[in-house]
Structures are given as C-alpha cells and as structure tokens.
Design a protein around this nucleic acid. Structure first.
Lengths: 213, 213
DNA sequence: GTCTATATGAAGATAGAC
DNA sequence: GTCTATCTTCATATAGAC
C-alpha cells in the first residue's frame, strides 16, 4: 500500500500476481473449473494470501473481469484518427481494427467468461458491454456523425448505421469464434472490402471512384 | 415443455423426465451451479436413476444440449417459403424471423450455456453452430443463390452476402441480449427495414420502388 | 430399473504461528 | 501479510436391497 511505485523493477505486488494467475486460469478453464488452490499455486503464494486480498472466489472473479474490461476498453480505441481519410478508407481502417479486436483471444475469452457467469454476476454484462462493443459503437457513430456533418454521407440514423456496419463486419465470424470455430484469416480482407462497399454504396454522397469491387 | 403427453399414458420415460429437469436447471443456473441432486429431485426420481440413464453429469449435459440444439434447429427453419416474394419482402420476412429466433430466451440461454462450457465440451460449439446460426446462414445463402438464378440480384458471393445481411440484422442486438441487456422491441422493425434497404440498394438488379422506408 | 444410504474426494474458506 | 495445516461442506458417483 505505502510503497506503490518503484521506479525500476515494478512491484511484484502479490495482489497483482494473484490477479494475473486468476486471469490466466479463468480464461483457460472458466470459472467453475478453476480452483482457488490452482490460482494460489500459479501465483506462487498460499491460498490464505489469496483470501487476504480477495474475500471470495466470486470477488476475485469480479476483480479479474473488471480489470480485463478496462484493458479491452483501452485496446478498443481506434488505432488512428480516420477523420481526414476518404470515406471508404476510413471505414476500411475501422473495419480491420474492429475485426482484429473482436476476434482476439483476449476479447473472446472475456466475452465467454462474462456470458457464462451472467446469472451469477448480472452487472458484469453491462460493464463489459460498455467497455468493448458499446464503446466501439459509440466511436463509429461519432465518426459517422462527423462524416455527415462534413457532407461525406447523407442524412441517416448514425447509431443504427454504425451498428449495422459493425454487424456486417461481424457476419458470423464472431459467433463462430465464440464457439471455438476459428475463421480463416484470409477471409478478413474480403469481409471488410465487401462491407465497406455495401455501406459506401448506400450512404456515401459522393462515390469517388467505384464501389468496392 | 409442460406436458409431453402420450396417447396412452404409457411412457413418462424417466430418462426424458431427467432430461427435462436437467434442461430447466442447466438453463437457469448453468452447468457448474446445478447439482445432480437437484436434477434428480426436480425429475422426481432418485439420483441413482439419473446415473442409470446418464453415465455422468457431463454426459447428461451433453445430451441435454444436443437435444436442445435439435429443437432450435427445427425452430430455425424459415417460417414460410419466400421464394415467390419480391426481394425486399423476402428479405424482410427472413429478417424478422431471424431476429425473433436469435433473441429468444431459448436461443440465448443455450448459446450462453454452450459458450460457458466450451472449455469442457469443445465439440458442442460446432454442434450448436451447425444447428442454429450455420443452418440459418445456409438457408439464406440458398435463397440468395436462387434469387441470383432468377435474376433478382446480380453476381455476388452469396455466402458472404448472406453472412453480412444476417450480421447487419444482428447489429449489436445479439451481443447485448447475450449480455443481459434486452433491447427495446420497437427497434426491431427499424433494424429490419434499414438492413433490407441496405442490401436491396447494393445487390438488387431491379430496384422496384425505393429502399424499405 | 429403481430406490435408500453411503463412500470419496475436491474445493471454498479459516485458524493460528511467524 | 504471509505461511502451513486444517475444517467443513457438498456434490459426484456407487453399493446393495427390492
């Protein structure tokens, strides 16, 4: 507590070791199949130490999930400012970043964990949604509103369009990945290109060159 | 699920009673939090009887999930033949049926269960996918190929278009519902109309009137 | 096949020394 | 705060009678 920051080698901080171990095991085996013994062993501490920092297995799970949500939240920020780009290029950039994010093992396992324990931790559903998919949706919506203000796209319900653009990108890739059926990476480019073409065709005010293909 | 009646009160079939009880409890509490004692009690049989029919809790879970997949599989069939309809109307019909299906409590809880226990039962992911989302995708793809053959839509990758159409319908509704954030039902019509307009605009060979609304 | 009763073991949580 | 050792509960699975 008192010594929070070390300028050099960061504090091993048992509580963080425990959290890291819990994260790894919850992700790998799920909540039910992960024991506090296993977490303590992996963290290299005793079980009593685990309980000194987290009052129960559920509290540890909640702490793990919320930290993970914060991390995903940070990773979900758009990689660069796409405001200046042409519409198709901006959408393509967004699309690639989005698919990479939602298909990452980190995101998928977190989603699985939260969905799995939703009966036990209902509030985690909202926390996760606001951290990841809701946040991305808000970003894209904001971009579309800006694009509309700049005359790149016509009048539309930007929230709905953003949701459908992200949905078209998802296709069935996300649910397949969620179910453990990993998609061929080669498909990703085709998916993004087609989704971009789809939305440019419908919403773009000026179609600079041609539709997608 | 309340009454499976036989014409002759012959077989209440304990194995089915057990399966029904297991289904209800797994859905309500998940795999980990459901005990064999509870299942036996709910089915009105002894625990030994449960084990006489299902070798283990895992086997019972697998049997429950697979039966549920078969049921969802049947419900997922398109409600009517849309082949004769105009494109926009056919897509609209498909869209409403699809959203109703994926947002149903039955489908969501099953998806949650399968995702939750994926580490323990990896093969259930594929079974569920083929039963529900994969099956719907195949139906829509088949419809699109027929529509293409009839000249309603131009040349395209029907599998990809089907996936993106269903994805646009999903938007973030499915993931929200999965996370326990139930959407306003009023939105559904707007979502379907906009998605139909989107795909008609891009793919229809003849645009009869205008997009959806 | 079905029951009552029980063995077995795992896992969440704690006591008390240091 | 951290450890070793232990307590307690409870769920899976089985034994044996009918």
């Amino acid at each position: 507590m008192s010594e929070r920051d070390n300028t050099e080698a960061e504090t091993p901080a048992k509580s963080v070791l425990v959290l890291d171990a819990a994260r790894a095991l919850f992700i790998e085996h799920g909540f039910g199949a992960t024991s506090m013994d296993a977490i303590a062993a992996r963290a290299g501490v005793s079980k009593a130490t685990v309980y000194a920092h987290y009052a129960s297995k559920q509290a540890l799970f909640a702490a793990t999930t919320q930290r993970e949500c914060r991390r995903v939240h940070e990773r979900m920020a758009l990689p660069q400012d796409v405001t200046g780009l042409p519409l198709a290029q901006a959408l393509s950039t967004i699309g690639h970043a989005f698919l990479q994010a939602i298909l990452s093992a980190q995101n998928l396992t977190l989603l699985r964990m939260v969905a799995a324990e939703l009966p036990r931790f209902p509030e985690l559903g909202t926390i996760f949604y606001d951290s990841a998919p809701g946040r991305t949706l808000a970003s894209v919506r904001a971009y579309l509103e800006q694009a509309r203000a700049h005359g790149l796209i016509g009048d539309c319900d930007c929230a709905l369009v953003a949701a459908q653009f992200l949905g078209a990108l998802r296709g069935d890739l996300q649910i397949r990945a969620l179910l453990g059926i990993t998609p061929a990476v080669a498909d990703i480019d085709a998916v993004v290109d087609e989704a971009v073409a789809l939305f440019v065709t419908r919403y773009a005010v000026v179609t600079p060159a041609e539709g997608g293909r």
